[in-house]
Nucleic acid binder design. Sequence first.
DNA 1: TTGTAGGCGTTATCAA
DNA 2: TTGATAACGCCTACAA
Lengths: 336, 336
Amino acid sequence: MANIKDIAELAGVSIATVSRTLREPHKVKPATSKKVNEAIEKLSYKTNLVASSLRKQKADAVIVAVPDLHNSFVAGLVQGVENVARENGIKVMLGVTEGKQELLDRHYEMVAGKQADGMIVLDVNTPSAIINNTSGKPLPIVLTCEYEAILLCPRVRFDNIEVAAEAVSYLVSLDHKNVAYISGSRTLRMSRDRQSGFRLGLRRAGLTVNENIIAGGDYRIETGVEATQALIESGEKFTAIVCESDEIALGAIHTLAEAGLQVPEDISVLGMDNIRFAQYGNPPLTTIALKSSQVGEQAMRLLLDYYLDAEAANREIILPHQLIERKSTAQLLSGK
Amino acid sequence: MANIKDIAELAGVSIATVSRTLREPHKVKPATSKKVNEAIEKLSYKTNLVASSLRKQKADAVIVAVPDLHNSFVAGLVQGVENVARENGIKVMLGVTEGKQELLDRHYEMVAGKQADGMIVLDVNTPSAIINNTSGKPLPIVLTCEYEAILLCPRVRFDNIEVAAEAVSYLVSLDHKNVAYISGSRTLRMSRDRQSGFRLGLRRAGLTVNENIIAGGDYRIETGVEATQALIESGEKFTAIVCESDEIALGAIHTLAEAGLQVPEDISVLGMDNIRFAQYGNPPLTTIALKSSQVGEQAMRLLLDYYLDAEAANREIILPHQLIERKSTAQLLSGK
DNA sequence: TTGTAGGCGTTATCAA
DNA sequence: TTGATAACGCCTACAA
């Protein structure tokens, strides 16, 4: 591979001039720059980005740390990060955590090791580096969705309390009075906020808050299946279910159908996320749209801001959500 | 950030000894190594991987280039790459191509620029670097699924001809004689092979090959919807559909249902991929499982082999597929 | 077993 | 407008 020295020799100039031709073309005489560019073309020279990084003390790369990619919410977030990163000439490194603190921390070492300029996190855990950060300065980390007890860290998330409260309001507007709730976690701040929102929604409607809440272990379709089975077996009375993800909702509909219950005639089901499959569900799923690609985009922007001004970027962005009415929810027939 | 020199000073040794303590611990006296490790701990030193890369002329990173992450087949592949990469201490950089040659080539420049050691590609395009490669030596690129007219390049894929042929055989074993086919592309080698397989399957069964093939533009659910509408409007007679992806199949079932056709009573539908949603379809989808995570894993292994021996790694891996019977296909009732 | 020193390929400062 | 040169932080012969 040709390096900058080879170009300098072939063009008959110094390496400084070659570098300038590449980075600050306006500072070099057109004739010189022409010679240099010809040499570059001829040897098909490409800047060695590793050397460049080392010298500039900047990697032009970020890490996006996520538990896995199976979930389309996660995939959307990564895609969002990539979009904004690419616009800005920044590379994205993938950090799968499997929900393990250790792996998350190991990914952060790439930031510590200067191989990346910052990290965007979507995970149940918080990087130890943040927790132990006593420097008084925020680290180049952006937290998304989850945001437990963090003092100094930019973050982007949804208004989870409102999301769930509006889900309830909508069902109440369809005359439902016995609303069950399937959560994806009992520990995540996001889930706990949504559960608070669920109760808030019921109270706003003047309904008694019964604890018809089933907490699953994650947001996958299997969780929806199991939780719905548990709900049915519990014998509790309900005419609608709020689910913390579309996958859970899809699992719920599936299980309800197997139990001989029709959606939405017998039970209304409402999801969250608005994944691509939601509108092709049977029936198409009513859901609250939470655009994960927006989360990724905003998180990446925050990281870019951070690079310009660490203090200014130390803030929280709350993204909008939107109810999308489809066919999995319906007016409660009187007498139920 | 503390660097190797700081550690050397604090431990009272040379930087060579520090480096050795990290890379070749057996070559250093335990007492010395203890001092060094204490210093490392104290200053929470982390190797600067950029400097290390530059010196070693090895990035310990690979790029995985994919059109986008919306598709779960793609996400699975990326996940597979990540798994094997992580086991081997290699970082994964994400390269989204949007199906554009230019972006794919730009991602390869990171390999050319030494920021990555190799690239794994799942895309409609082939990197120009391969096409223009006249060096006689294979490049550190592994192609997956797609493999058009490539002379010198390791690759991993499925036996697409057999995949489609078996799909047909299975439907024929259920007495179907009028089988339609929805493809995801008319240009991709993968799709063309599957179409060949479709015809082969019909011929094997002694059936006339009618050209009941609808070619969609991609493998998404929307394509299944549109193609199925076209199929219904065409007035052609068919009792089963082979779809080139589960998403297409899900879209087909959705559209069939809207047209008042029951699956599998009226029409059998068979997909490919076995995505996570397949078993929760309504009805659960019969499909040919193509594990994309395996593709990613094998591709990454091939790249590792390549690093050890470029020639030996210049080969093709063909992965197994498997028919999974669920409820979207059924015996054809006589008289249809 | 440890230390010295050169070099990986850039960028950026300073002087010419 | 250009060139010489000193870093960036690390690894690894080679010498001691």
